[in-house]
């Protein structure tokens, strides 16, 4: 009897811990907000908040996509930055060549999809995801430099600018897209068999395989999602600044990985949510913005980011280790 009681009690414990993570993150966001508002009054100015949420949205969109890769137990992708760069460049080139806007958005995103699918197939075969994406990132970045000759590509058409600068209800359109994508991915992960497969692969790939789940398909789909979401960031950037160059997204990989890890998605896969990643992205963007306002040196900012990410990884690992034993 006692064993039954224990096993019955466990799921509730797991639920409450997952909730505790969300609450802790949300409390973190609020604390950072209050502390920064008190110490740097311009942090809470309307312009700065808009800039912060816009930055958070770009990091967040890519990070929400990457969460799928992390959930399948394939750690993170180190080619997010390069995928965003090449999509942005293709989009700017297409607009500059006079393509209609829908084609200039859809075709580069299709390219991003192919890039993601190729990496996904490699990883689903059993190749190491970090090394695959490292190599793919180098190759993509090389191609981006070859097709642009390392020069800035001008889109030359102001039409798509509404996508980058419009503010329905006073909120930048990037944030709307971010929120919608978070909601969709939350539903996908919780309510669809694909979402459950993704989590199952991460928590126990052997069980998933012997249960007849389609692992290859789910892993490839996860990489496609991550890649297309990174591509969306590239398109949004072109819409905002009307040009693209290979150095547009320098450091983006670090921010996106930081958002996923700070969000507390288990690095061994299986546990986590896109909502938490979204909160992680907001924390990282607010932290970066605050450090910029407080005029921290670039080195100091990197050190603090590194400590936050490392601390989050160790802390989440410790909490999970305690609870599972």
């Amino acid at each position: 009897m006692s064993t039954i009681v224990e096993t019955a009690a466990k799921p509730r414990l797991v639920m409450s811990r997952a909730k505790a993570f969300n609450v802790a993150l949300a409390v973190g966001v609020v604390v950072v907000l209050i502390v920064s508002g008190l110490t740097q009054p311009e942090f809470l100015s309307a312009d700065n908040l808009v800039a912060t949420v816009r930055a958070a949205a770009l990091i967040g969109i890519a990070a929400v996509g990457m969460t799928f890769i992390t959930l399948t137990g394939n750690f993170v992708s180190l080619s997010t930055e390069q995928t965003a760069v090449i999509t942005a460049i293709l989009c700017a080139m297409a607009l500059g060549a006079g393509w209609p806007m829908w084609a200039a958005v859809v075709v580069p995103l299709a390219v991003a999809m192919v890039i993601g699918a190729l990496q996904g197939i490699f990883v689903a075969l059993g190749l190491n995801s970090i090394i695959t994406t490292l190599g793919a990132g180098a190759a993509i970045f090389g191609i981006a430099n070859v097709i642009t000759n390392s020069k800035t590509i001008q889109a030359r058409v102001p039409d798509p600018m509404w996508l980058g600068t419009a503010r329905p209800l006073g909120i930048p359109i990037q944030v709307w897209i971010f929120v919608v994508l978070v909601l969709i991915t939350m539903v996908v992960l919780r309510k669809t068999s694909f979402g459950r497969t993704v989590k199952m692969i991460g928590s126990n790939s052997n069980t998933a395989r012997s249960s007849g789940l389609r692992i290859t398909r789910a892993v490839v789909a996860s990489f496609i999602i991550a890649s297309v979401f990174a591509g969306i960031c590239g398109v949004l950037l072109v819409a905002q600044v009307n040009q693209a160059k290979t150095l547009n997204f320098t450091g983006f990989n670090i921010d996106v990985v930081a958002a996923v890890l700070v969000g507390g998605t288990a690095i061994q896969g299986g546990e986590g949510s896109t909502l938490r990643t979204a909160l992680g992205a907001i924390v990282i963007a607010m932290l970066t913005n605050y450090m910029l306002l407080a005029q921290y040196e670039y080195g100091t900012r990197l050190i603090i980011t590194g400590f936050v990410v490392g601390g989050a990884v160790i802390a989440f690992n410790w909490v999970r280790g305690k609870s599972s034993s």
């Binding site: 750690f75 993170v76 970090i130 670090i254 990985v257 930081a258 890890l261 690095i267 061994q268 040196e297 670039y298 080195g299 100091t300 900012r301 990197l302 050190i303 603090i304 980011t305 590194g306 400590f307 990410v309 490392g310 990884v313 160790i314 690992n317 410790w318 280790g321």
Partner: peptide, 22 residues
């Protein structure tokens, strides 16, 4: 800790680069 080194060294990669800039 038994943390996967691929993930842990991403954090130290950021941190140590920050030390270089500092």
């Amino acid at each position: 800790t038994g943390i996967n080194s691929l993930v842990f060294t991403i954090a130290t990669l950021i941190l140590v680069r920050g030390v270089a800039f500092a």
